[in-house]
Simulated assay, not measured.
Amino acid sequence: MSFKSLTLAALAATALAMPAFAESMITVTDPYARVSTPMSKAGGAFMVITNTGDEDDRLIDVTSEISKRTELHTHKDDGNGNMQMLQVKEGFAVPAGGSHGLVRGGDHVMFMGLHKGLNHGDVVSATLVFEKAGEIVVEIPVDLERKVDHGKTKDHKMDHGEGHGHKDH
């Protein structure tokens, strides 16, 4: 047998021996972005991420061309009653058959160093990067009128972890 034949046979045997992995089925609903004022240099994006697949996935990164830096953030109590906004480098778990809300005062996308002001009705684009589902591009309308309690409905069980306050951006 030639080296090429051996290599192909080994690849075929490896592929057949590997278990079949179920696909992650990620959907993003009700996205919106906001800034404190139209000329703010920072803003946030919020949405509900649902995994209808049969295995857990994880949002591990986010990119956007609207700002110098785009990061996954959360709010955390520093133990003295003060809320701090922190980057979450490990990302956010999205459980199989469940949802994870990116909400004001909790986990969210942070745009830092906006290249231009954002106005109500503008649309920004961001790419969510998942461990299993890969990249998903989301078109996010700017909504400066949305109330603070977005994403906190009976229909969506949100997994925010512990210690996340609910303070507006």
Rank of each mutant, 00 (worst) to 15 (best):
A15Q: 07
D30L: 04
A22C: 14
L11A: 08
V28R: 00
V35Y: 00
T7P: 01
A9I: 09
P31T: 00
A33E: 01
M18H: 11
I26L: 04
L8P: 05
A12Q: 04
S24Q: 04
L11E: 06
L16E: 14
A15E: 13
A33Y: 00
A15Y: 09
Y32M: 05
L11M: 09
L6D: 09
Y32S: 07
S5Y: 08
V28N: 00
A13N: 05
A10F: 10
S24H: 03
E23I: 11
T14M: 13
A17W: 11
R34H: 08
A20W: 14
S24I: 03
T29Q: 04
M25L: 15
A12D: 12
A17V: 12
T14N: 13
F21L: 15
D30P: 01
I26T: 01
E23G: 12
A33S: 02
D30S: 06
T27A: 05
F21K: 10
P31H: 00
L11I: 07
Y32A: 04
S24L: 02
E23P: 12
S24R: 01
S36I: 07
M18L: 15
I26R: 00
R34K: 14
P19G: 08
P19M: 09
M18C: 15
Y32P: 02
D30T: 07
T29N: 04
A12M: 06
M25D: 09
L6F: 13
A33C: 01
L16S: 09
Y32R: 06
T37I: 03
T14A: 11
T37G: 02
A20V: 13
S24V: 10
V28H: 00
E23L: 14
P31D: 01
P19N: 08
V35L: 00
E23N: 14
P31G: 00
A9H: 05
S5P: 10
R34F: 11
A13F: 05
M18Q: 14
S24T: 10
E23Y: 14
A33V: 01
A17K: 14
V35W: 00
Y32D: 03
A33H: 01
A33G: 03
A10W: 05
V35S: 01
A17H: 14
S36E: 11
A13S: 06
L6V: 12
I26F: 02
L6I: 14
A10G: 06
M25A: 09
I26C: 02
A13Y: 04
T27W: 02
L6M: 12
A17N: 15
T29H: 05
P19L: 07
L6S: 15
S24N: 07
L6T: 14
E23A: 12
T7E: 07
S36D: 10
M18S: 12
Y32H: 11
A13R: 04
S36R: 09
S5E: 15
E23K: 15
